[in-house]
Design a protein around this nucleic acid. Structure first.
Lengths: 226, 226
DNA sequence: TGTATTTGGAAAATATTGTAAAAATTAGGC
DNA sequence: GCCTAATTTTTACAATATTTTCCAAATACA
């Protein structure tokens, strides 16, 4: 099975150079999908599963930072920014958004490739399989189906995203802040308690298995196997 | 529980700059050990456990590349090279040896710090020591679980924090004042005796293992193994 | 005996959950 | 396209539950 990589880059020559290099060096091990603009990129990120993203920042349409936020809403996929902007602020902002690495153009292809390999091996454990399970709850990231105690349940979009987040961090306590930042975005200003409400609905929708979501007072929530 | 980082760097000023920055920005969350030469570094890598290594390459004694090999022989610990050598070959060689990232001097401290945080969070699943133990009591800072005599116990937030503090200073006497300052803050104005009450509840919650919290009259409390 | 600590209980402060309705978004029909 | 109906998300507030604090009596210690 090969790694599925996504490259979002509007510069044709860079895109093709990377494509050629990966094909030459990586052969069948890497399956590269490319997008030439942000909108295409977002569509792909939302509809498919990748093992690593390489994102240009300045793009026609949606920019790379937004793509990163979109990706982080649904997964922990490794992300490398790939951009001409070498400004300190941009780089730090990228890390704030949860990127893994940052490479400034013009860059060396062998170095990019080395980073990609290092990150894939580091993330090996979390490569998103199709089905995530915890106790009685399971979630299929491809079909967006959720099963609780063997029965399929219908979740509202936000409920699905929250459950997905909890599954990605199962056993760990997720602070309200962490969930809000991941799902609502860094700059969300609204009521903190909004999450509690969604939790209630999620628990209710999950029925008996809702008990697997434990509240850790003053800390947040965590998903356990019971 | 804090992350244990190791920095091997022979340049005094760089070493101190990083130390100061981490202390200022990371506070108690990062526990930095430093070594000024390769031999010291190797001894530490072989004898202790770290959550992340920052290695200079050109060092008196054993060089950074060798340190990386030594570390990889026994673990998957995240490794960042930190060096003046920006040569392509060196960088690629570093990745060959299994490093995670490479930062060329002179570098920006915020960027280094951002990389450290990103890597630690990426490697979170594999981080070894999240558990603090003393006798029959153990505490997991990732899941916020506390076990006493093999059974999980539920602690109120203040109780958890007090136990966490005692574990961080196990075997040492913790004065009332030290605990109050650490957990309530300098400006706390309330009753001094409040701690006694929390101690009572903590001991009760821990059951038999509550006996491990010793009162040192007129001094404070300490956690022992019995 | 005087000082320090422990204990129990109740009030005060916080945090979480439940309910309901307003606002925003989406989907379908015309 | 535009409007309406249905669903989802957000907001606000009331009801519960939990935790923290305070106080005073009881106990232990030097």
């Amino acid at each position: 099975m090969s790694y599925r990589l996504l490259l979002v880059e509007d510069d044709n020559s860079i895109r093709e150079t990377i494509e050629d290099y990966l094909r030459a060096k990586g052969g069948e091990d890497y399956n590269l999908t490319v997008a030439a603009n942000g909108d295409e990129g977002r569509f792909l990120i939302e509809s498919e599963e990748f093992d690593l993203l390489m994102l240009d920042i300045m793009l026609p349409g949606v920019d790379g930072f937004s793509l990163c936020r979109t990706a982080r809403r649904k997964s922990d996929v490794p992300i490398i920014f790939l951009t001409a902007r070498g400004r300190e602020d941009d780089i730090l902002y990228g890390y704030e958004l949860g990127c893994d690495d940052y490479i400034v153009k013009p860059f060396s292809l062998p170095q990019l490739f080395a980073k990609v390999k290092a990150l894939l091996s580091r993330a090996a454990g979390n490569i998103s399989g199709q089905v995530m399970t915890c106790g009685e709850i399971s979630l299929n990231t491809r079909t967006f189906q959720v099963f609780s105690g063997g029965r399929e349940v219908e979740l509202a979009p936000k409920e699905y995203e929250i459950l997905h987040f909890l599954l990605r961090h199962r056993q760990n306590v997720c602070t309200r802040e962490a969930i809000l930042v991941a799902l609502w975005g860094y700059e969300y200003e609204g009521d903190e308690r909004i999450l509690d409400n969604h939790m209630k609905k999620l628990r209710k929708a999950l029925g008996d298995a809702g008990k697997q979501i434990k509240t850790v007072i003053t800390k947040g929530y965590k998903l356990v196997e019971l």
